[in-house]
């Protein structure tokens, strides 16, 4: 056991230790009124989803009734059947491959962006060099460009490098505007970590990269996972690039597939609902898995009422 690894271990155990410290004081649940507020919040946020669920099993003609019935007379499971068993060429059947495409594009983009942004953020936060502020703004400015402005030249580039209508192509495009965001967010979170930590680890003999990976990143976990979560959502949500750059089930993503459920000629709200519900599930699962990291440093009942 080298001294430096001990230092890293200490970094990990510190929050945990602090947490156990605090626990004595914050064991109790929040007061009842706060639970009531939480119930109201849950209802407000979930009500539209409840209706999506109901609408997805209500026949199109029942959805138009006035007064609206809040429960379908008979269950119409055709949309779900279409999505799960429909031919891949139909809009509903194409949704399956869209889910896979979206997941791959999001995972690829987030991995690439976070990997390069962590290094960059460390440099901006911890190294002294000329033009740091400008560097960050320079990166961030690409995140500010409306996609519409650059979509045509980008299209040409993708054709030239053979990545049009291709998931890797989308990953590269998305990474170009998600990396600045991750880099900037991580810089902020690194900045919030006191430099005494680095100093202590340096004294222990750890190199810069070791400090970054074993000390700073674990401490910045909440920020890191917030950034990952947000980056995932940006990928999941992106519409215009995907609309223009993808055209077959090989790479069409969820927003594009869902957009095809509705058009000026026909919108089946039930199908849109079923697709929307399915689309919302993966990010929520990912988020719930990650949430314990996001809130790792948070003492139970952190802010007392």
């Amino acid at each position: 056991m080298t001294p430096s690894s001990g230092g890293a271990g200490s970094a990990k155990s510190a929050p945990a230790k602090a947490m156990s410290h605090r626990r004595g004081m914050n064991d109790r649940y929040a007061p009842v009124w706060m639970h009531l507020v939480a119930v109201v919040v849950i209802v407000v946020f979930l009500a539209p989803f409840a209706w999506l669920a109901i609408a997805s099993v209500t026949s199109p003609s029942d959805l138009l009734r006035r007064p609206l019935r809040w429960w379908p007379q008979h269950l119409d499971l055709s949309r779900w059947a279409d999505i799960f068993t429909g031919d891949a060429n139909t809009p509903a059947g194409g949704f399956r491959s869209a889910m896979v495409n979206s997941a791959i594009v999001a995972a690829g983009t987030v991995t690439l962006s976070v990997a390069v942004a962590v290094l960059g953020a460390y440099a901006v936060s911890r190294l002294k060099f000329r033009g740091r502020g400008i560097t960050v703004l320079g990166f961030l400015s690409t995140y500010m460009i409306p996609p519409i402005a650059i979509v045509i030249p980008l299209y040409l580039i993708l054709v030239r490098i053979g990545l049009l209508d291709n998931r890797l192509g989308l990953i590269l495009v998305y990474s170009s505007f998600i990396t600045p965001f991750v880099l900037w967010t991580l810089t902020n979170f690194f900045d919030a970590l006191p430099r005494e930590i680095d100093e202590a680890a340096t004294i222990d003999g750890a190199g810069r990269m070791r400090i970054l990976w074993q000390v700073l990143l674990p401490l910045a976990k909440p920020g890191l996972f917030s950034a990952i979560l947000f980056a995932t959502m940006l990928c999941w949500d992106e519409f215009l690039y995907a609309l223009i750059f993808t055209s077959t089930p090989a790479s069409k993503t969820i927003p594009v597939a869902v957009a095809e459920f509705s058009g000026k000629f026909a919108t089946d709200f039930g199908l849109l609902s079923a697709g929307g519900l399915l689309a919302a599930i993966p990010p929520v699962v990912v988020a719930l898995v990650f949430q314990r990291y996001v809130t790792a440093g948070l003492a139970a009942g952190g802010v007392k009422g």
């Binding site: 609309l243 055209s247 957009a259 058009g263």
Partner: peptide, 21 residues
């Protein structure tokens, strides 16, 4: 054959034109 909704048709044609897709 590729298929897009009417709403996307015009823009798709414009974006793809220089590349000759």
């Amino acid at each position: 054959s590729e298929f897009v909704a009417y709403e996307a048709l015009h823009d798709k044609i414009v974006a793809a034109a220089p590349a000759g897709t």
